[in-house]
Design a protein around this nucleic acid. Structure first.
Lengths: 191, 191
DNA sequence: GTCTATAATGGGATAGAC
DNA sequence: GTCTATCCCATTATAGAC
């Protein structure tokens, strides 16, 4: 793997564990095995690193959503897969979605990073609203009336469930917090 | 106001804006109008300050919950008041609940602070489960079947809604994310 | 209880050799 | 592309005078 990618990978896991303020070039240098001055060759400022990090993360997430769309035909299946995305990102309560990790410390974020963060939220709402609109029509989510309101609620639920789990350093609170949401989804399609 | 309280107040608003890693003794010194060395007279280590800060916050929050219980008779009214607590804590998207602000950067927190944080979550779940159990019986929350599962979901929803709002530096996302929850509550009692 | 002074550490960042 | 060496600054924390 090239050094640039290794640095981004190391920065991602550090940022998802400890936030933007919580990791340093010294941490990355140790993990990747170069001196911290060398990192500036790839990312002159920490702001450059943070921007590329979040852009890569958001793009990967949107790719995942597109793949969920093609791999699942029913709205309920898509929403289950969306839930799994957040569940897996938690690992064992040791890591957050990068956007959750960055949101809390928003005041330290460079302005371009903040823009990508809010775009991520906007894109998530667009995707959720579309899927939940389908669910409103086909009845595959129990008690669903307002797709857009539920889209905002679902995003907040996933992010909040991750946060509570992170505080406990365990995935269990995430599962408890999202159980009622999963229970509303109609049975998985079997073909 | 005594200096100790002024320091706690200043630290609280700073921590709720920028997290545990995001505020320093220098910030507090400037706001309170003493030198930063003098802060160590009240709080020898930053860990001491953080612990007292969160203990005070959690105690105040539990007092608020007790007051909500006495001031509201119906479960729906109590849940509306609970929602208002989180809504007001947001200010205009500039401040988080202290527990939300601390959760993201949990790795920097001293261990005693972490214990208070998890106790806060446990106490919140206890309160929500009790209120939602009443609602299960009197039917004042639409589509409610499992009180404990909904308690965990409600806590995650409030915390996540705050986080999304904080990212946007605006209260609007909080209102959008919680609208569906509020819509499930039966009409306010009028006496 | 508050101050000045200072230590000790770690952060982001740069210059210039190789 | 990576290194050593260095700078400047902010941070938490302590010692000791007033």
């Amino acid at each position: 793997m090239n050094t640039r990618t290794a640095l981004l990978n190391s920065a991602e896991s550090a940022a998802r564990q400890r936030g933007y303020d919580g990791f340093s070039y010294a941490d990355l240098a140790q993990e990747v095995g170069i001196r911290k001055a060398s990192i500036h060759h790839y990312f002159p400022k920490k702001a450059d690193l943070a921007l590329e990090l979040l852009e890569r993360y958001a793009a990967g997430f949107m790719d995942d959503l597109a793949e969920i769309d093609t791999a699942n035909s029913s709205a309920a299946d898509k929403l289950r897969a969306y839930h799994t995305l957040y569940r897996d990102a938690l690992v064992d309560g040791t890591q957050l979605c990068l956007c959750v990790a960055f949101s809390a410390g928003r005041d330290s974020l460079p302005e371009p990073v903040l823009r990508v963060l809010n775009q991520f939220h906007a894109d998530s709402i667009t995707w959720l609203t579309r899927v939940l609109s389908i669910a409103t029509d086909d009845g595959s989510v129990a008690g669903l009336t307002d797709a857009e309101a539920e889209a905002h609620a679902t995003l907040a639920l996933m992010e909040g469930a991750q946060l509570v789990a992170r505080a406990a350093d365990s995935a269990a609170p995430f599962d408890r917090a999202t159980a009622a949401f999963i229970a509303r989804l109609s049975a998985p399609s079997t073909h």
